[in-house]
């Protein structure tokens, strides 16, 4: 009996020792020499592997950073300037700074303002529906509401609002990785420069139809009336195909355009409620501010 145990112990230990020796030599032979800085850089990165930088994952981005001479075209939107400064320190280079950005949805056509005109009965994804036709409302540019963007968001920054049927961006979670921008088949997301207190003013519409047609399909569509364009003191607004666009880099957030819009398609978010100046625009403003409040409340809840 004793010899059995002894035999077993000896054989197994022998096997283990043999395997260890083989493994040691194999590991020596196939050792890959790697720049140790890659590990350091990777350590500094957020490890979200979201692909927002354009690389497959954080490791690939770290390799690219170490290999490249400068940070041309290399930026981690998730980590932002802080992370990039850290990476720069590791590599002994000057950091490049970029303005932090945040995603906004350029459609405000909720269920009430944009009535459904047909029933979609296919597989419930935006991509399949948009490959089939313009959508279940008369606006072929607007949000389809199946939430493909929510699915791809790695940072829990998007959720569907059951009241409007539109996705809502949670500003504090959004890292501007751009996954939703790539995913949306209607190209409704835009990465805009973050301003103080997350304030923003933008045209929440992509409808390129003529005013009458646009207005008929959606009550908050941009009808291309040029009023905002005319009033803007900073030349931040451009008009194309009956559609206004506010350039976030030029916009000084003066809010002059917002009350001008006859269809309330310009949204102002993060501002304190303004004092009423005239009774005429009273209703419009109330609507805008109430809508804005709703979004704010949603945001706060998520925070």
């Amino acid at each position: 009996m004793d010899s059995v145990i002894l035999d077993t112990v000896l054989t197994l230990s022998g096997l283990g020792a043999g395997a260890a020796i083989i493994l040691f030599f194999v590991a020596q032979k196939f050792k890959v020499v790697e720049d140790p800085r890659i590990d350091e850089v990777e350590e500094a990165l957020p490890a979200a592997n979201c692909g927002g930088c354009g690389f497959a994952g954080c490791r690939n981005f770290a390799e690219a950073c170490v290999k490249a001479k400068d940070f041309e075209g290399l930026y981690c939107p998730v980590g932002g300037n802080e992370t990039m400064a850290e990476v720069a320190k590791i590599l002994g280079r000057d950091a490049v700074e970029q303005d932090p950005r945040v995603a906004v949805l350029r459609c405000n056509g909720g269920c009430e303002s944009r009535p459904k005109t047909n029933i979609y009965n296919g597989a419930a994804t935006c991509k399949i529906a948009s490959a089939l036709y313009g959508g279940d409302t008369d606006c072929q540019y607007g949000c389809l509401g199946f939430g493909d963007c929510v699915e791809v968001c790695d940072f829990d920054a998007l959720k569907m609002d059951p009241l409007t049927g539109l996705p809502v961006v949670n500003d504090s979670n959004c890292t501007a990785c751009g996954a939703c921008v790539k995913e949306c088949p209607k190209d409704l997301f835009e990465l805009r420069k973050r301003a103080k207190k997350d304030r923003k003013i933008y045209v929440a519409c992509r409808n390129e139809d003529k005013g009458g047609i646009a207005k008929k399909s959606c009550s908050v569509a941009c009808i291309g009336c040029n009023k905002c364009y005319n009033v803007c003191p900073h030349d931040a607004i451009t008009m194309n195909n009956y559609l206004a666009f506010i350039d976030a880099d030029k916009c000084k957030l003066c809010r002059k355009c917002v009350p001008e819009c006859p269809t309330n398609s310009i949204l102002e978010i993060g501002f304190p409620p303004r004092k009423d100046r005239s009774a005429e625009t009273d209703n419009d403003k109330n609507e805008v501010t109430s809508g804005e409040k709703e979004i704010n409340i949603n945001n706060n809840k998520e925070v």
Partner: peptide, 12 residues
């Protein structure tokens, strides 16, 4: 199952 819906998407 809406197989063709998804196959068409994959094909695209």
């Amino acid at each position: 199952r809406p197989m063709l819906d998804y196959i068409r998407l994959g094909k695209n």
